[in-house]
């Protein structure tokens, strides 16, 4: 395991991918390697790209990679697609849009399945970001799976969140709802050649003008830009608008650094990570023991028969395991 982390630090792609896989598969002792990498992380700019299925996230990322490569930045991409709730299998099809970068050693693309996670990402994604950072990628793009209104876990991982929308998805009340619409640092209207793009543009400008984006402490406010991205059917225009998006993402990062809001984001990110780690080291072993000993099953049986309520059961378990 120690060797694996050394190889990751040396930029070995297979080692990075294997380490991510060990984290996904929850192979025992994988955390040893992550511990060793932890100090090598924190230097990359993490960009989250989120939006509905088919909004064009992967295609956008493909062009974004090209834009970053023109600026001689190295790029890591973690692309998440859903796991079947029935079979545990998955079809990971994001990188089908990013094929042209497959042989570029400055680009590393890794597909992840959600594996039961409900927030638009996979459970291992936080650690996977660390692995990609430690392997030396300057920009880490995290693509969520296609999301609805409230899969907003990306805010716990990304410095800059780009919400990708397409015209024709509802009226202006949809636009002011909580959840996805309030996490954007940048809005992208993709497929902006379609009917309804101008209406959506106006609605987004309205909510952007009212938005405080969670970081109210700063005197210098970030005005959420609304960027239109032209149809990919016109490749030059498309590339041009994604170049502008790339500049805007960079501008946001500089804003975070200058306004010292980056540390707020990092605090949010590390709090989430610590929560995860606590969950893993405290609750996970208890659940494991309850499951292995068959106690979980007998508790469920009691609940189904209405012999007891879940709160009393949880209290009983807590009394046994948790010492103050």
């Amino acid at each position: 395991m120690e060797e694996l982390s050394k190889r990751v630090l040396a930029g070995d792609i297979r080692a990075a991918s294997r380490l991510i896989r060990n984290l996904e598969d929850q192979i025992p002792d994988t955390y040893v390697a992550i511990k060793e990498l932890f100090t090598a992380t924190g230097n990359s700019h993490i960009v989250g790209i989120t939006g509905a299925p088919g909004a064009g996230k992967s295609t956008l990322i493909d062009e974004l990679i090209a834009a970053y490569r023109k600026k001689e930045k190295t790029v890591g991409v973690l692309a998440v697609d859903p796991t079947s709730p029935f079979t545990g299998g998955a079809i990971l099809g994001d990188r089908i849009r990013m094929l042209r970068h497959a042989e570029d050693s400055g680009v590393f693309v890794r597909s992840l399945a959600t594996r039961g996670s409900m927030g638009g990402l996979s459970k291992a994604v936080g650690e996977a970001i660390h692995v990609v950072e430690a392997s030396g990628k300057e920009k880490v793009i995290v693509e969520t799976c296609g999301v609805g209104q409230q899969e907003v876990d990306i805010i716990n991982h990304a410095h800059t969140v780009v919400v990708v929308l397409v015209p024709g998805m509802g009226d202006d009340v949809q636009a002011i709802k909580a959840g996805l619409m309030e996490i954007a640092d940048i809005f992208v209207i993709n497929k902006a050649d379609r009917d309804g793009a101008n209406k959506l543009y106006q609605e987004l400008l309205n909510i952007a003008s009212l938005s405080r984006n969670g970081d109210t402490a700063s005197s210098e406010q970030w005005t959420i830009p609304v960027m239109k991205v032209e149809s990919i059917a016109e490749p030059l225009k498309f590339a041009e608008s994604v170049n502008l998006l790339c500049d805007k993402i960079e501008e946001h990062y500089q804003y975070l650094v200058k306004s010292k809001l980056l540390s707020n984001r990092l605090r949010r990110k590390t709090t989430a990570e610590l929560n995860e780690a606590l969950w893993g080291s405290i609750l996970q072993p208890i659940l494991q023991e309850l499951n292995d000993g068959g106690e979980m099953e007998s508790m469920v049986e009691k609940l189904v028969n209405k012999e007891i309520d879940p709160y009393t059961l949880a209290e009983q378990v807590a009394q046994r395991y948790v010492k103050k």
Binding site: T83, S84, T87, G88, G89, A90, I91, L92, R95
Partner: peptide
Amino acid sequence: RDAGFEVI
């Protein structure tokens, strides 16, 4: 996918 594999 239906067999439980992750397919890229």
